[in-house]
Design a protein around this nucleic acid. Structure first.
Lengths: 131, 131
DNA sequence: TATTTGTATTATGATATATGATACAAAAAC
DNA sequence: GTTTTTGTATCATATATCATAATACAAATA
């Protein structure tokens, strides 16, 4: 679980950190039930403020990716979501991404190929996580 | 081409407007060569400041979705992009979206189905635009 | 000449982002 | 029972972003 933040980016640090943790869970680098570093450890490792990390953990909890227990800290625990609501959110984001990509010249086939690769990668990563 | 902005949203107005215009082009509601409303018309219609619209048009031009001629205003003109760079950008965004979606319980098949629907919709919209 | 185009400038205010220092309750570790 | 560790609350500060407002300009059109 490597965290790499770009302080020169226009993307807020807390968003970058949030995304990298979600990606880490998706890739299986962070397994369900596993502990995240404490807010202080993470802040130290990433070279950022404790409260910034705390904000990220609070967001991830609100989004249902982790649970936070005062005594044990933050634990990976992805919650399933209502299927219809999930599809709507996903569809809205996909529509924009597909519009941008296809206007820029990407074919439907290329797009699907990329999606396929990502799903394959995440699945094998998740499988390896249990070995 | 309906513009609907949510001033209560955490997404900046200029981003919302930018996205809706890109979506409009993707859907074929705004065809290549077609004029966008003038910055003042758009500002009036959307109930926002002229300079906010100007910022959006400048972004769309920098992104290669429109061209701006001082005498004629903004014209839809999507530029193709380098394939490799495009795939990298798209892949990064897709990886996050797929991680989020699959962790929330979406199957690979559902995800592909949504993508297919969007591609179909955009293609028929683009075809109808030429009738 | 008057109007319309995008755009530059300057100012203002509200909100977002990030840091820093300090403190607290609750639980664990010793 | 004391110390340490946990997330978290609070207060202050600094900077950046977002959005508006009021002008003004050059270039082109009507």
């Amino acid at each position: 679980m490597f965290i790499e933040l770009n302080t020169a980016s226009s993307i807020p640090i807390y968003t970058q950190l949030r995304n990298q943790i979600v990606l880490g869970i998706g890739r299986g680098e962070l397994k369900t039930g596993e502990h995240l570093p404490t807010v202080r450890q993470m802040a130290e490792a990433a070279g950022i403020n404790v409260m910034t990390v705390n904000k990220v953990y609070a967001i991830l909890r609100a989004e249902g990716f982790i649970e936070i227990d005062r005594r044990h800290g933050a634990v990976v625990c992805p919650r399933k979501e209502n299927a219809e609501a999930l599809q709507e959110k996903c569809s809205a984001q996909l529509e924009l991404l597909i519009a941008e990509s296809s206007l820029k010249g990407m074919s439907r086939e290329s797009f699907f190929a990329i999606c396929g690769e990502i799903f394959d990668r995440q699945q094998t990563a998740a499988e390896n996580a249990f070995l």
